[in-house]
């Protein structure tokens, strides 16, 4: 099988985010592989282990720094990488079009994995756009996956712990959820080996794809304001309970008769 895994280089959740020129962040912070993409790489590596005769190709679109995340994917089990180099951070429509063009140039996918969302832009959509561009089915937030001869059967999460079981014809795009697997973090020898694996670099401008019909522009980026002014509730447990009930009744108005 030929399995592609799309990964994204994102700021660490613990990084201090500073905004520059009201529309972008200062990127001089620690970056990591998008956490859900680790599940995507792990699942591709698992298929390679279980099925055999499988090539796993990691793909990323990003600035020069994103190569580090591609190397992480190689250390976690991908065989080689495709690096679409971009000077900025295009929206999900351009990203999906570019990923499709780069994958198509490289070969014929059986499965394409992505994470279920990226923790920077939180768009929840690139996997579906990628699938639509290929004209193949997609499912996201997938928490179990079993490979059948011409299909995959997956479960994704619904509300209140319910799950939907769906079958997708191959090839398909799968957005991986956190509970799909436990990513194996790379060993030192795997990291050393990953340094020698092949990365094919393509400039975004050199990829041939039709410009999407729409786009999303960032007009402004602001720090989320902290408006709350904490007030302490004191007294015996019962006195505190009385105050909370009053707040729920009179201030929040959430207690109904």
């Amino acid at each position: 099988m030929r399995v592609y895994v799309c990964v994204k280089h994102v700021p660490d959740t613990a990084a201090r985010i500073t905004i520059l020129e009201d529309n972008r962040i200062d990127e001089r912070v620690t970056f990591i592989m998008n956490p859900y993409d680790e599940n995507a790489v792990e699942e591709a590596a698992r298929i390679k282990r279980d099925v055999g005769d499988t090539e796993v190709i990691a793909v990323t679109l990003g600035t020069q720094a994103a190569e580090a995340t591609l190397r992480s994917a190689l250390a976690m089990g991908a065989d080689r990488g495709i690096f679409i180099k971009s000077d900025d951070h295009p929206d999900s429509m351009v990203t999906a079009a570019a990923l499709k063009a780069a994958i198509e140039l490289d070969g014929k996918p059986d499965i394409i994995f992505t994470g279920k969302e990226s923790i920077d832009s939180e768009g929840f959509q690139t996997m579906y756009r990628l699938a639509a561009n290929f004209g193949i089915p997609a499912a996201s937030n997938v928490v179990t996956l079993s490979l059948e001869p011409d299909t995959v059967i997956v479960e994704y999460e619904l509300e209140a712990g319910a799950r939907e079981v769906v079958e997708l014809a191959l090839p398909c795009v799968i957005g991986t959820g956190k509970n799909l697997n436990k990513p194996n973090y790379p060993t030192l020898p795997a990291i050393m080996k990953a340094r020698k694996k092949e990365i094919k670099q393509i400039d975004l401008e050199d990829l041939n794809f039709e410009k999407p019909a729409g786009r999303v522009e960032i007009l402004e980026l602001k720090p989320a304001a902290e408006k709350r002014q904490p007030k302490e509730l004191t007294g015996t447990p019962d006195e505190v309970a009385v105050q909370i009930v009053r707040i729920l009744q009179e201030e929040a108005r959430v207690l109904h008769d």
Binding site: G214, R215, V216, E217, I218, A224
Partner: peptide
């Protein structure tokens, strides 16, 4: 952060 995004299309 809070982003203000504009959709075009």
């Amino acid at each position: 952060t809070i982003a203000t995004l504009k959709t075009k299309g």
